[in-house]
Design a protein around this nucleic acid. Structure first.
Lengths: 106, 106
DNA sequence: ACATTAGATAAGCGGATGCTTATGCGATTC
DNA sequence: GAATCGCATAAGCATCCGCTTATCTAATGT
């Protein structure tokens, strides 16, 4: 199960697709609701969603003829893991992140 | 200087280029030394390095006719920032990372 | 001075990719 | 049950991308 991060990097490399993901972060959304936010066709949206879903970055929920998509944040875990492998290289950076995290439980 | 993460995502999306970056993480390397590790031509390596450099992920040091490349880990900061924007969505995940970080100072 | 070596750049090619329009399919609505 | 709606899929197309070979520059070696 190596190279899972490959699909994630590829999925997030496209600006529109990344924007779709970011949009979903603000809340679950139907395809048509998403389409209204972007200047691409509905099939384009569906294709981006399929790519994000295949990468494990979004999840789908069908309700009648509607499909609601939401971010699957755990799909970003391999990305975090990948970056984590290089944390030894930028100590001051990880310190800043550490501070942020520790702020969650003062 | 918006959309910096765009270049980073794109740079890391290609498997070979990501492998080059990972290889450099093990230490500074000349182009020819890198080339010996991969089954692509020298121009391909140079092109990957140029892309990584443009994304701020590697740095170059010229010495005579040699060019030594090394990872520029601070170049990953925008990526960390980007992911950080979504940490609220996967609390159990951030907890795990938090544990890792706290393990650094037990 | 000439040849060689390290690396970057140019040009071109084939395959991948993101978009479009057209169509198919199931669920609603009338 | 016919029309419509929401969405997915198919097919085609233009562009992008990563690769190659060829060439160029600069530095070193003989």
């Amino acid at each position: 199960m190596f190279m899972i991060e490959a699909d994630i990097f590829r999925a997030l490399a496209d600006p529109t697709r990344r924007a779709v993901f970011e949009r979903l972060a603000s809340g679950e959304m139907s395809v048509s609701a998403l389409k209204a936010r972007f200047s691409v066709s509905q099939p384009a949206i569906s294709q981006h969603l399929a790519a994000l879903k295949a990468a494990g970055l979004v999840a789908e929920r069908r309700e009648g003829r509607f499909s609601y998509y939401r971010v699957a944040p755990e799909g970003l875990a391999p990305l975090v893991d990948w970056i984590d492998r290089y944390r030894a290289f930028w100590p001051e950076r990880i310190d800043r992140l550490k501070d942020v995290l520790k702020g969650l439980e003062p």
